[in-house]
Design a protein around this nucleic acid. Structure first.
Lengths: 338, 338
DNA sequence: CCTCCTTGTGGAATCGATTACATGAGATTG
DNA sequence: CAATCTCATGTAATCGATTCCACAAGGAGG
């Protein structure tokens, strides 16, 4: 693989001149530029990004640490982040934490070792040491979707979706369809999205004059299996719920499994709804009502904020809003009487 | 961020000694090692991977260029690749080509610029220039799932799944359930998987004494929309097929959309099956029969082959086999009479 | 006691770029 | 015509590691 000195030799100039041509510095004579460019083309030369990064102390790379690649919500987020970053000539390196704090730490560490310019994180749990250290050391950092609180973290912008309104809409929708005993499969209490969705659900219920009893709050971990387990517990209750709200799409899937395994039907026996809408929800039996986050906008806003930070501008937190998409899993839509 | 010389100063030794401790070179006195390690801990020093890579000419990073992150098959593949690589102390950088040759080229280029040690590719189309150049330049490279042929590409190992047996099983399954007019939604002819699956389907039909007429071969592009379009064409035929086989999961989804939009039912009016099984197929209405690839094994084998190449050992192509998973989308399973 | 080998350490070159500073040729100006 | 300025280019330092080579101290062997 040719290096800059090979180009220099072939063009009959010094490496400095080649570098100037490459970074289109104004003071290079036109014919010299031509010669250098010709040499570059002849040799198929490409600048070594490693060497360049060492010298300039910037990698034009962003790290993105997400909680679970297999969750379509995060896949879509990753995709929109990459698109937005590419637009601004940055690359993205993805680290999949798989909801495991130790893996999250591993990825933050290797990304920092590679001297990425900034870090986009959707934290797995309360406070992974490397992440705290990175934030405190002043690494440009932005939280997406989830966030954590802690010393030195108050200056990290948070780009997220507020689901309160959508959750209120969902509860109203469920009530209108006659459901009264509503249950929730919550995410891990250590995640903000885990707590927040329960809170939103509880207040929405209160506004509708209902209460959320403790036995109708199930503790999940954002994975399908936990959704199944919690649903089993719900259905074993002497007084089982008539509607279940899963705090993410994977747990909704688990819930559906368990309901079906017991020979029950959605929505006739139990209604079902989920946080995070995904294309597949249109095709399930029945199609599942869900609260949709604007993943595209989320990714773009996150990248914009992070790059502002990287390039020394101030950045602010952004809160977008989610919206309810009703399908058949909560009951027949109003207009149609069977 | 502290550098090696800061550690050296604090420990009262030279940078050479610090480096020796870090790479646990044997000839360092025990107490010197202690002092260095203490300095490392005090400063929270982490070696700069960029500098190290420049010097050693290796990044311990693998590039993975896939055709579409939003396709669960590739997401699972990416995940298994990352797991396998991490096991061997390599990182993975993913590039999503989105089935676009220009984007594929962009990613290959930036990965090469970053001097990744090896490249794992699931090529989008016939022959993207950067990829050919990379292969010819001797960059360790391995094809996964799909591959391309061409000058200088004959020494690139291919890690793939052979679907012939599974496709034959599928055709037999469909015939047993009474289907006779079988159609296929093919992938792009430029991809090997696109062509191969049609071939396998055609020979399987022939073995069953059926023919695959040209109007029952639809040209798709592995995206949901194309599946929908092709299905519409099939259903508009004077003599529409009674079973449709989609060459990937996304196109099956599109097919299902179109079938449902016309008020038809799966499998009563048209049977449906797909290549690539995914968790969501269990939950669709009806559950979709599919041909499952062993993604975990595929990812592991690909990483093993690539790292063999990277570390100077010879590597060989691997062909795993797919298996048919029958659900309800082709008709009621044999045992149960409605 | 002198030589030779082993062990632990430091000095300095190196990887491939960028960039401050030096330099020489030619143009401008008093 | 000498002084000064501008422009194009080269020389060399630098980023943070690794690693070859040199060297000093101490032990072994003749």
């Amino acid at each position: 693989m040719p290096a800059i000195k090979d180009v220099a030799r072939r063009a009959g100039v010094s490496v400095a001149t080649v570098s100037r041509v490459l970074n289109d510095h104004p003071s290079v004579r036109a014919d010299t530029r031509e010669r250098v460019l010709a040499a570059v083309a002849d040799l198929g030369y490409r600048p070594n990004a490693v060497a360049r990064s060492l010298r300039t102390d910037q990698t034009r790379t962003l790290g993105l640490v997400i909680s679970d690649v297999l969750n379509p919500f995060f896949t879509e987020l990753a995709r929109s982040v990459e698109d937005a970053a590419r637009e601004l000539d940055y690359s993205v390196v993805i680290g999949n934490a798989d909801e495991r704090p130790d893996l999250q730490d591993h990825h933050v560490r290797t990304l920092m070792d590679r001297r990425i310019d900034g870090l986009l994180v959707s934290p797995t749990d309360g406070g992974s040491p490397m992440m705290l250290a990175a934030a405190r050391a002043g690494t440009p950092m932005v939280f997406v979707d989830r966030w954590i609180e802690g010393e030195g973290l108050d200056r990290v912008p948070v780009i997220r979706t507020d689901g309160r309104t959508a959750v209120r809409d969902l509860v109203a929708h469920l009530c209108a369809l006659g459901h009264r005993r509503l249950a929730i499969i919550a995410g891990p209490a250590a995640t903000t999205t885990g707590r927040e969705r329960v809170d939103a659900f509880r207040s929405a219920l209160r506004e509708s004059g209902l209460a959320l009893s403790e036995d109708l709050i199930g503790q999940g971990d954002f994975q399908a299996d936990s959704g199944r387990r919690v649903t089993a517990r719900f259905l074993d209750l002497p007084h089982p719920p008539d509607a279940i709200f899963a705090a993410d799409n994977l747990m909704a899937l688990g819930a559906m499994d368990e309901i079906r395994a017991r020979g029950l039907r959605v929505p006739d026996d139990v209604a079902l709804a989920a946080f995070d809408d995904i294309p597949w929800f249109v095709h399930t039996d029945p199609p599942i009502s869900a609260i949709a986050q604007p993943t595209g906008a989320l990714g773009r806003a996150a990248v914009r904020a992070l790059i502002d930070l990287v390039e020394g501008r101030p950045a602010e937190s952004v809160t977008l809003s989610a919206r309810l998409v009703t399908r058949r899993s909560c009951g027949e839509p109003e207009g149609s009487t069977p």
